[in-house]
Design a protein around this nucleic acid. Structure first.
Lengths: 211, 211
DNA sequence: GTCTATAGCAGGATAGAC
DNA sequence: GTCTATCCTGCTATAGAC
């Protein structure tokens, strides 16, 4: 019956949140220690260094959340009433933007992902291999059932969809600025998802004939 | 005949490059001083602090390059042989990805933009107001000639296009990873632009009927 | 305006008591 | 395993000579 949260777990959880919010350089181990209510030295004791802590955050926290999103995509697909390209795009958007992951965990995934895309570290290859590529492959496989084109086009198409999802989600501050939504609530989010689906569904057709 | 590059200009230019490459926190004024071959103290003499230097980089360097891209978009539009939505998307993609700006200057614009989207600073409102919104408005205005829909949809559509352009351009390392292009040269870039055009052109149609 | 030298501080890491 | 105390490095910023 060891359901007590260990110090190590507490540190992992807190530092995931802080790295996501303020980035690797913007987060100090003193910050982490204070927020996790542990001693600075405990962090170095458990993880050796700030960098190794960060890598463990990616391996343990990031990958586990990302895996949940991927599972949710596949489960969305299975439960789709119909069987068409729209379901694939919808399943993807919803898995990413409306998944049942708590908001904080989704923020961790997105934020760390965008930060690694912007400023790749040693963790980038891990993220690409274990989180990004598998999801892209899954989506491509589903789309391939409806769209016959060479693999390269298929992947580019999936990336076009994903780029929108990331952009509208993570950069919502700027989106809010440009569109001047009076508020940015769940309703707005659904509207944006619907827009991505509308836009991308038609977009798919444009890619069938690519050479 | 004062065409000698002043110390101040040299510092601005070098720091724009370094801030773009390594971010605000990743760049030290010592780095800048070394690369610009000036003294550390000269930077503080001319700009007061690192932060004020950064803000001047945004105001002087970033905005000036961004303005060139916007001008290039408008000139592309004027010189289009035909007059259709495809020309608008093509004009935008080319202005951003193939503009005559030297590669280094384009890198400065994109990189600083993405960094500000990821980690907004005091500079973000300036960028949004003077670089992002004007371009988005211009593009929306052009598209509005062909697509009659409410403004909100129009803007979302423009953002869908821009999100792809940013993604494929700035995150090219990851794109290369996913698509496994054997090489990432001018030819590949043109292929990607063509993909964005194909995808978005059809995508537009999906947005005509949005409510 | 440009330099050297240095103050002053923040953060990462470790030694050693408990 | 956890704490306190401390070292060390690297940074921004400034004082003051030239």
């Amino acid at each position: 019956m060891k359901n007590k949260i260990t110090t190590k777990e507490k540190i992992l959880k807190v530092s995931a949140k802080l790295f996501a919010e303020k980035g690797f350089y913007g987060t100090s181990i003193r910050d982490i220690a204070k927020n996790a209510k542990v001693n600075v030295a405990a962090i170095n004791y458990h993880f050796g260094s700030k960098k190794r802590l960060y890598l463990e955050v990616i391996q343990k926290v990031f990958l586990s959340h990302a895996e949940k999103i991927r599972k949710e995509f596949n489960s969305n697909i299975k439960n789709s009433p119909k069987n068409n390209p729209e379901c694939v795009i919808s399943a993807l958007s919803k898995a990413v933007l409306l998944s049942k992951l708590p908001e904080t965990e989704r923020k961790v995934v997105f934020s760390l992902l965008v930060r690694e895309l912007t400023d790749p570290s040693e963790a980038f290859p891990i993220i690409a291999k274990h989180a990004l590529l598998p999801l892209v492959e899954d989506v491509a496989k589903e789309l391939n059932k409806f769209i016959k084109t060479q693999k390269e086009n298929l992947i580019l198409t999936v990336l076009s969809i994903i780029s929108q999802i990331i952009f509208f989600n993570f950069f919502s501050r700027w989106v809010r600025n440009a569109v001047s939504f009076s508020k940015y609530d769940e309703k707005t989010k659904e509207k944006i998802i619907q827009h991505i689906i509308n836009f991308s569904l038609k977009g798919l057709e444009g890619c069938k004939g690519d050479t």
